[in-house]
Amino acid sequence: MSDATGSNLSKEQLLLPAVPEWRRMMNRFLGHRGLLMGSIILGLIVVLAILAPWLAPHDPYLQNISQRMIPPVWHEKGSWEHVFGTDKLGRDYLSRLLYGARISLTIGLSAALISGLIGTTLGVLAGYFGGRVDAVISYIITTRLAMPVVLVALAMSALVGGSLQMVIILLGLLLWDRFAVVARSTTQQLRDAEFIASAKVLGASTTYILVRELLPNILSALIVVMTLEMAHAILLEATLSFLGLGVQPPMPSWGLMISEGKAYMFFKPWVIAIPGIALMVLVLAINLVGDGLRDMNAPEGRN
């Protein structure tokens, strides 16, 4: 029966991939509980941040001295008017929290993008060209690793003054080391791969080889680093803002909210607990996504 059509098809040609790639990825995604949970929480925070102008019940900057330090709704003196209460200037805490998510996400994403660009460029060049280029870049990486990030960030922001843009640029310039290390080692593994050699023989330019042949193959590793550095940047921003050297008042940064509440924390613990928990949940969600993505890309996880 197979004579008519199958006679000139070899056995290997008849082996068909049964499930399309995206279906397999989808199944792995749904099968990974941490990744699923992390994505849902992170997605929720992103949606809340984007919709903050419509969701926030009050203007986050509006001060109302007669409404100071109202406790949250679950407290006996709380009210639905201010679900998470108000701060020492009578500003609505929920509205500030929603707008604060925008700051954290903006800083996390922008800083990780800048540092990703710097670190990936350095790492790929070092890994691909090796030799003297590698020696110089490795020296730069080592120098960067020898600097204590928090200290340098503090000193720099004390020097140039804090603002949203400054924090983004500062963290972007500081957090590229892991990108560089990962890009360098993954590039080293691939630089002698035969598909790279084949592109060279075909006369492809070095730029083409690096951007179109190599980069897509190291991207998944870099995305995992990206999540780590996003969480890192968000925490550092909170630290800087807490110390008064990051985002400046009256912006509703979560770190700043904790800082502004710290004088009241023994009597009204919710003023620091609410932004603190928000920060923890966001960082946890990002880390869950990062871990999950790493597992999804791990070759031993392939089905």
């Binding site: 791969a193 035969e194 598909f195 084949s198």
Partner: peptide, 12 residues
């Protein structure tokens, strides 16, 4: 043009 040894490494 080349044909390489390892068809697992020669295709992106």
């Amino acid at each position: 043009q080349p044909i390489f040894q390892d068809p697992y490494s020669s295709l992106n």
